[in-house]
């Protein structure tokens, strides 16, 4: 796996809910290398640090990748000013990505929270009807990508904290229910830490392996600065690893959240 640092043309820009934008970049070399669950480091003009954003979807034939991000602060605001036809400067693809093979038996569940929903879209696409997507949001006006998940054939369950649409409350209940139906080979999660904790706990209780994608503040994004630490326990030993290079995806059974 290798990465590139280049500026690529934006061929599509869409506003999703609220301050959330979807960008499609034409970057065949990146699309060709990229794997579901990897991320890119986006240059925000005028800022010292790049912003890590997950790859939401990869189209190897068209040579495109899609990024979906929310404006959270000054850097993402700056990036969101880029329009169709502009170039986006990225280092990509980075990190390890999710580990899965659709040839294996069984169903999979993907659990996304808020802006953690994008990176698992292609897992749902690849598993089709064997996938269940459980997507949690604060409120109806924050819901994103539910139709994209459903389009691939995945059973899609939307949850909102305020109950304004879908299941009221967190993803925990629907996840437990789906797990109890059996035949689940793997659960994938990305979202806020409390949500990931719930995912890992439910999976441990059900004896199902899980993979979670972490967020951490980053410097380089490529493994050089050890700014982005996280702790895993393997074989009884504790290791401090890098979210950017050893992750962002870790085994739920190993990672300390």
């Amino acid at each position: 796996m290798s990465f590139f640092c280049n500026s690529y043309p934006i061929i599509e820009k869409k506003a999703l809910a609220g301050d959330i934008y979807s960008y499609t970049l034409l970057c065949p070399e990146v699309a060709n290398e990229a794997k579901t669950g990897q991320f890119v480091q986006v240059k925000a003009e005028g800022y010292t640090l790049r912003r890590p954003i997950s790859i939401c979807s990869i189209d190897k034939e068209k040579g495109t990748i899609r990024l979906v991000f929310e404006i959270r602060g000054k850097g993402t605001d700056k990036i969101s000013q880029l329009n169709k036809g502009d170039l986006m400067d990225i280092i990509a693809p980075l990190g390890n990505g999710f580990n899965y093979s659709t040839e294996k038996q069984g169903r999979v569940i993907v659990v996304g929270g808020g802006i953690g929903t994008p990176p698992m879209l292609d897992i749902a696409r690849d598993y089709g009807e064997r996938a269940t997507a459980i997507l949690g949001f604060r409120s109806f006006d924050r819901v994103i990508l539910d139709k994209d998940y459903a389009k691939g054939g995945a059973k899609t369950i939307v949850c909102t904290d305020d109950g304004s649409v879908g299941v009221a409350g967190t993803i925990a209940k629907p996840l437990e229910e789906e797990l109890s139906k059996g035949d689940v080979a793997m659960v994938f999660g990305c979202g806020p830490t409390p949500m990931l904790k719930a995912v890992v706990e439910c999976c441990k209780a059900a004896g199902v392996p899980s993979q979670v994608s972490l967020e951490q503040r980053m410097g380089c994004g490529v493994g050089a600065c050890v700014v982005c630490a996280c702790t895993v326990i393997r074989g009884g030993r504790q290791y401090v690893l890098r979210v950017c290079k050893d992750g962002p995806v870790f085994k739920g059974e190993e990672v300390v959240l």
Partner: peptide
């Protein structure tokens, strides 16, 4: 050495702070 707890980086005007 395992270093310090995270977050270990903050952006500043034209720079960064680190506490690796």
């Amino acid at each position: 050495k395992d270093g310090n707890p995270t977050p270990r980086i903050a952006e500043t005007p034209s720079g960064i702070l680190n506490s690796v």
